[in-house]
Simulated scan of single mutants.
Amino acid sequence: MQEIKWVFVFFALAAFLSMCGIGIAIGAQSVIGILGCTAALLLIMGFGFKTKKRWREEGKL
């Protein structure tokens, strides 16, 4: 049985919430909200992929 990597659960949840934020901002017609949530999504996903690569290189995955 595999162990849960909670940091990746956090990254996935944060990315999901950013995507929801984009939808809410579109509904509210807020360009600043759309841009902010899109930037947050890109940063969160980038950190997630970077962390996964680093952990794989260190043999933690």
Results as ranks from 00 to 15, higher is better:
14 A>S: 13
27 G>Y: 04
51 T>C: 09
9 V>H: 06
26 I>G: 01
29 Q>V: 06
57 E>H: 07
55 W>E: 09
24 I>R: 00
51 T>D: 11
4 I>Y: 05
22 I>M: 00
16 F>K: 11
53 K>C: 05
5 K>E: 10
44 I>T: 04
39 A>V: 14
54 R>P: 01
19 M>T: 09
4 I>Q: 08
10 F>R: 14
34 I>Y: 02
33 G>H: 03
53 K>W: 03
33 G>K: 03
34 I>Q: 00
14 A>H: 05
36 G>R: 00
15 A>D: 09
17 L>W: 01
61 L>A: 15
2 Q>Y: 11
35 L>P: 03
55 W>M: 14
42 L>H: 06
16 F>N: 08
6 W>M: 14
28 A>Y: 01
7 V>R: 06
50 K>I: 12
26 I>C: 02
34 I>H: 02
26 I>Q: 02
9 V>I: 15
44 I>M: 04
26 I>K: 00
61 L>H: 11
25 A>P: 03
25 A>D: 01
38 T>P: 02
48 G>F: 05
52 K>I: 13
56 R>F: 12
47 F>D: 10
60 K>Y: 11
9 V>G: 08
56 R>P: 01
24 I>N: 02
35 L>Y: 07
27 G>T: 02
32 I>N: 06
50 K>C: 09
55 W>A: 11
5 K>M: 10
23 G>V: 07
30 S>V: 00
60 K>F: 09
9 V>S: 10
24 I>V: 12
32 I>E: 04
21 G>T: 02
59 G>Y: 02
18 S>Y: 00
40 A>G: 07
36 G>L: 05
54 R>W: 09
28 A>G: 08
39 A>K: 02
3 E>M: 14
11 F>V: 12
51 T>K: 06
41 L>M: 07
50 K>Q: 14
10 F>L: 15
50 K>M: 15
42 L>W: 01
7 V>C: 12
1 M>T: 13
52 K>N: 11
20 C>S: 12
49 F>V: 15
40 A>N: 07
48 G>E: 10
9 V>K: 10
10 F>E: 15
47 F>H: 06
3 E>H: 11
28 A>S: 14
4 I>C: 08
44 I>A: 04
18 S>G: 13
21 G>H: 01
22 I>S: 01
31 V>N: 04
15 A>H: 06
47 F>Q: 08
32 I>P: 01
5 K>V: 11
60 K>E: 09
59 G>Q: 05
43 L>G: 13
4 I>T: 12
1 M>I: 13
24 I>G: 02
36 G>E: 03
30 S>Q: 03
15 A>V: 13
59 G>I: 07
33 G>A: 07
9 V>M: 05
32 I>M: 08
26 I>Y: 04
40 A>L: 11
46 G>F: 05
14 A>D: 09
2 Q>C: 08
52 K>A: 12
46 G>T: 12
